[in-house]
Amino acid sequence: MRDHAIALGPLFIMENKQSIGIFDSGYGGLTVFKSIARKLPQYNYIYLGDNARTPYGDHSFETIYQYTLECVEWLFAQGCPLVILACNTASAKALRSIQQNILPFKYPDRRVLGVIRPTAEIVGGFTKTKRIGIMGTRGTVNSESYLMEINKFFPEITISQQSCPMWVPLIENDEHLNPGADYFVAKYVNQLMQKDDQIDCIVLACTHYPLLVPKIKKILPDGVELLAQDDIVANSLSLYLENHPEIASRIDKGNATSFFTSGDAAAFDAHASIFFGAAVVSNHVNLKP
Rank of each mutant, 00 (worst) to 15 (best):
residue 41 P to S: 13
residue 39 K to W: 01
residue 69 L to W: 10
residue 50 D to S: 03
residue 18 Q to T: 15
residue 33 F to S: 03
residue 18 Q to W: 05
residue 49 G to W: 08
residue 23 F to E: 08
residue 22 I to S: 06
residue 68 T to A: 12
residue 37 A to H: 12
residue 58 D to F: 02
residue 68 T to Q: 11
residue 41 P to G: 13
residue 57 G to W: 01
residue 32 V to A: 03
residue 17 K to C: 09
residue 20 I to R: 04
residue 43 Y to Q: 01
residue 50 D to V: 01
residue 29 G to V: 08
residue 63 T to W: 05
residue 54 T to Y: 11
residue 31 T to I: 07
residue 48 L to D: 12
residue 35 S to H: 06
residue 45 Y to K: 01
residue 68 T to H: 15
residue 21 G to L: 04
residue 46 I to K: 00
residue 36 I to K: 09
residue 23 F to D: 05
residue 52 A to L: 03
residue 21 G to A: 11
residue 68 T to Y: 06
residue 41 P to N: 11
residue 58 D to C: 09
residue 25 S to G: 14
residue 60 S to K: 06
residue 37 A to E: 13
residue 36 I to L: 11
residue 39 K to Q: 14
residue 44 N to S: 03
residue 37 A to N: 14
residue 67 Y to Q: 14
residue 33 F to Q: 07
residue 63 T to S: 03
residue 59 H to D: 06
residue 65 Y to D: 01
residue 24 D to M: 05
residue 68 T to K: 11
residue 35 S to A: 15
residue 26 G to K: 08
residue 22 I to L: 02
residue 29 G to F: 09
residue 18 Q to M: 15
residue 17 K to E: 12
residue 57 G to K: 05
residue 65 Y to P: 04
residue 22 I to F: 00
residue 50 D to K: 05
residue 48 L to T: 13
residue 27 Y to W: 08
residue 27 Y to Q: 03
residue 23 F to Y: 14
residue 45 Y to C: 03
residue 60 S to N: 01
residue 61 F to E: 12
residue 30 L to F: 07
residue 62 E to L: 09
residue 61 F to D: 12
residue 16 N to R: 15
residue 33 F to C: 04
residue 17 K to D: 05
residue 64 I to W: 01
residue 53 R to T: 08
residue 51 N to I: 06
residue 51 N to T: 06
residue 21 G to M: 04
residue 20 I to N: 08
residue 33 F to Y: 10
residue 29 G to Y: 09
residue 35 S to P: 02
residue 51 N to P: 02
residue 50 D to W: 08
residue 59 H to K: 15
residue 40 L to A: 05
residue 65 Y to M: 04
residue 46 I to P: 03
residue 70 E to V: 10
residue 41 P to Q: 06
residue 50 D to R: 07
residue 48 L to N: 10
residue 49 G to V: 08
residue 39 K to A: 04
residue 29 G to T: 12
residue 48 L to H: 07
residue 29 G to I: 05
residue 51 N to K: 05
residue 30 L to M: 11
residue 36 I to Q: 09
residue 56 Y to E: 04
residue 56 Y to R: 04
residue 66 Q to F: 01
residue 24 D to A: 06
residue 49 G to I: 11
residue 43 Y to P: 03
residue 67 Y to I: 13
residue 43 Y to H: 05
residue 34 K to S: 03
residue 32 V to G: 03
residue 58 D to A: 03
residue 35 S to N: 07
residue 54 T to E: 10
residue 48 L to A: 10
residue 64 I to Y: 02
residue 30 L to K: 11
residue 15 E to D: 14
residue 49 G to Q: 12
residue 67 Y to S: 14
residue 34 K to T: 02
residue 16 N to G: 10
residue 39 K to F: 00
residue 33 F to R: 00
residue 37 A to Q: 15
residue 63 T to L: 02
residue 17 K to Y: 13
residue 24 D to V: 09
residue 55 P to H: 00
residue 26 G to M: 12
residue 33 F to K: 00
residue 62 E to N: 12
residue 46 I to E: 02
residue 29 G to W: 02
residue 58 D to L: 08
residue 25 S to F: 13
residue 46 I to F: 01
residue 36 I to M: 07
residue 17 K to S: 10
residue 42 Q to R: 13
residue 64 I to V: 14
residue 55 P to M: 00
residue 23 F to N: 09
residue 26 G to D: 10
residue 40 L to S: 01
residue 27 Y to F: 14
